[in-house]
Amino acid sequence: MSPVQADTGSSKSTSTSRIEVTDLAGRQVSVPLHVNRLLLGEGRMIYALSILEGHDPFARVAGWQGDFRGLDVQGYAAYHARFPEADQVPLVGGTSAETFSVEQALNVNPDLAIMALTGGHGPGPHSEAVKQLEAAGVPVIFVDFSQHPLRNTVPSIQLLGKAIGRTSEAAAFIDFYQQSLDQVREPLAKAREAGQLNTPSLFIDMLAGLQDCCGSPGEGNFGELIELAGGHNIGADKIPGAIGTLNPEFILSSDPDVYVATGVFGEGRGGVTLGYSATQAQAESSLRAIASRPPIGELTAVRAGRVHAMWHIFYDSPEHLIAVQALAKWLHPELFSTLDPEQTRKTLYQRFMPIPPTGVFTVSLPTTAP
């Protein structure tokens, strides 16, 4: 089923103790009015949950999938430093949907399960696991921050806020989210209206150096962020879905104006070093190595120094608003000379997140003449 916006503005009471919502898979779901035990079908949903739960995001987490621990090691370490009880949250699976255990999920006795629409690291909308959870009396709702982030982030936050009783917190974040995106939308609209806007092409090399060349967003995911930021995603020319691969020959023939890699691990783990424990020097040196590998080093963008990188988890988090601002600066440096994505990130964390904004999440190499 195609993702649709959640009908969160007028949920109706089905009884004195339950409410009815429409999730991002278009499913009508009856959820408890007071949720005390949450099951996270992807561990990285802790980022979105943190925005709504304030200073204690683990207060209601009864169990979670293992992707946060296993694949986002810097993020997990940052949370663990502030919340050591993260180690005690029961795992209900590993880092893939196939490892999700319905038996372990039911053992944590959840009031509500939250799943990702894409079903990449946990069960998807049509999975047998979801059917079994619902048959056992566990309501399941689907959210989406990855497949179509610009379309679905606001309704997903609204849905979560209503389901867990955090509607005012959801409204506050949505206001901040829209204002942050408007800092990009409005200057671009004025420049476009004045006939002064070009559309540079861009290649996002997802998990660069950590997999065969080359992962890329297509029609969705980071691709939507590139379009909002005033660029053309070359991956959309070949990939019909949200994420896919591009062959080196196509990348070379497209010769994009700007090159962006994504990274997630710490120093020594390969790829671009970005995240909560990364330093500027580590980020720059690792990006330089990644951008010089064949065939990427042959691109005009790399030879000219139009080389950047950003945190890979932006692809699946409401924090992608920071990525939009960074992309806008990289694509249109003169138009966005005063825009400060790092300050936006600091403000986001000060207002909504329970951990400090440590580390490096975007990085650029010095620009040289083409």
Rank of each mutant, 00 (worst) to 15 (best):
S101R: 03
G119H: 04
L33H: 07
Q65D: 06
A105R: 03
V61I: 14
P84Y: 07
S50R: 04
T95V: 15
F58I: 04
I51Y: 06
A135G: 09
P125F: 09
K131A: 15
V138I: 12
H126N: 15
D111A: 00
I141R: 00
G120V: 15
G93A: 10
G63A: 05
G54N: 09
G94Q: 10
I46Q: 03
T118R: 04
D56L: 02
H34F: 15
I141M: 02
R44N: 15
Q74W: 10
P139M: 08
P84S: 03
L112F: 08
H148Y: 12
P90K: 03
P149L: 14
E128S: 09
G66Y: 13
Y79K: 01
V130S: 06
V31C: 08
V130P: 00
S50H: 05
I51Q: 04
A97D: 08
R82N: 12
G43H: 05
V102C: 03
M45K: 07
N107H: 12
H55N: 13
R44V: 08
E53V: 11
P110D: 13
Q104L: 11
V143R: 01
L133V: 08
W64D: 05
S30P: 01
E128P: 00
P149A: 14
D56K: 02
A113L: 04
S127I: 00
V138R: 00
A59K: 10
L112D: 05
A81T: 14
L40N: 01
A62F: 12
P90M: 10
F68P: 08
Y47A: 05
A78P: 06
A78N: 12
A62C: 05
L38H: 04
H148P: 00
P123A: 11
A97V: 03
L49N: 06
V31M: 11
P90R: 06
H126K: 14
A116Y: 03
P123T: 07
G75P: 10
R44I: 07
L38Q: 02
H121Y: 13
T99N: 08
N107D: 14
G63W: 06
G43F: 04
H148D: 10
V61S: 04
G119A: 02
L40G: 00
V140E: 02
